[in-house]
């Protein structure tokens, strides 16, 4: 299957599959959208895949009246704090790995490599125990702390690989000027690693935003509910009101679609760099 510009024979099998797969991908997404605009009373009468005869935003209104904004804000807080702290502590650690001449740095890096392979499911019971012991059960901190811990290995890996590219001479000249390690980190490393921080930040934000197991196990009340969990409880609460449930789905994915439009390149390279997850 030749696939560069100078194509002599088309890749027929690939093309057929690609168009079929496009339908498979787009159909459910189209269905979410049209159903969210369908009035509740028409849901059982109209063809599920037709454009609604009387499109309305009623479903969105019902979702917003049911505390959706609180769940949304919880997700925003958990995601923003988790990603910010993950980036900060991982960058500091990556700097140590790159700069240290001893075994400590190398071992730190090895631990991170191993850490990528730990599945959340395997650790969830002790994490639950820890969170209960710390008195954090059913708080947003209960979601933030483990989310950070499980984001660190991959973030550290990507940032370390990036920092290795910074020329040694830049560090040396700052040190000659008598700059402390912290000053080098803030004035040199942070500005230079902005592209890598963006890539891994967008990727980790997607992971935390969509995470389900930590919220399911570590929180309980509506006060601490985040979006993926709220979708699940909406499904139980609204039951037959499918348009409202799917309107909540649309609202929950909008920020990620916005991120995809604004930072597509970062998200894609974050995902392919994030092989380990």
């Amino acid at each position: 299957m030749a696939k560069q510009q100078s194509e002599h024979r088309p890749n027929v099998a690939g093309a057929v599959l690609a168009w079929v797969w496009l339908a498979v991908i787009v159909l459910p997404i189209y269905y979410i959208f049209v159903t969210s605009l369908r009035p509740r009373e028409d849901y059982y009468a109209e063809n599920p895949l037709s454009w609604p005869a009387n499109p309305s935003l009623g479903a969105y209104q019902r979702v917003l009246e049911n505390d959706f904004l609180r769940f949304f804000m919880n997700s925003v807080v958990v995601t923003a704090v988790s990603v910010a702290v993950t980036l900060a502590v991982s960058l500091m650690a990556a700097y140590v790995v790159v700069r240290s001449r001893n075994r400590f740095g190398r071992n730190l890096f090895r631990v991170a490599l191993l850490g990528i392979a730990i599945p959340i499911q395997a650790a969830i019971i002790p994490v639950y125990y820890l969170i209960v012991q710390l008195g954090l059960y059913d708080t947003l901190a209960a979601l933030i702390l483990p989310s950070i811990a499980f984001s660190i290995p991959l973030t550290l890996l990507i940032l370390t690989n990036f920092l290795r590219e910074i020329p040694e001479s830049l560090f040396e000249s700052m040190r000659m000027d008598g700059a402390t390690e912290w000053r080098i980190l803030l004035r040199l490393v942070v500005p230079l690693s902005r592209p890598a921080l963006a890539t891994v930040g967008v990727y980790q934000a997607l992971q935390v935003w969509n995470g389900f197991l930590f919220p399911l196990v570590l929180t309980q009340s509506a006060e601490t509910r985040v979006l993926p969990l709220s979708l699940w409880s909406f499904q139980g609460q609204f039951g037959v009101d499918v348009p409202a449930v799917l309107a909540a789905v649309v609202l929950s994915v909008l920020p990620m679609i916005a991120a995809y439009i604004l930072a597509r390149r970062q998200l894609v390279s974050g995902l392919t760099a994030g092989f380990g997850k």
Binding site: L22, N210, W232, I257, Y260, R264
Partner: peptide, 11 residues
């Protein structure tokens, strides 16, 4: 093709 990656499993 990328779009499904933006949705949570719950969604």
């Amino acid at each position: 093709f990328f779009l499904p990656l933006l949705f949570s499993s719950a969604a």
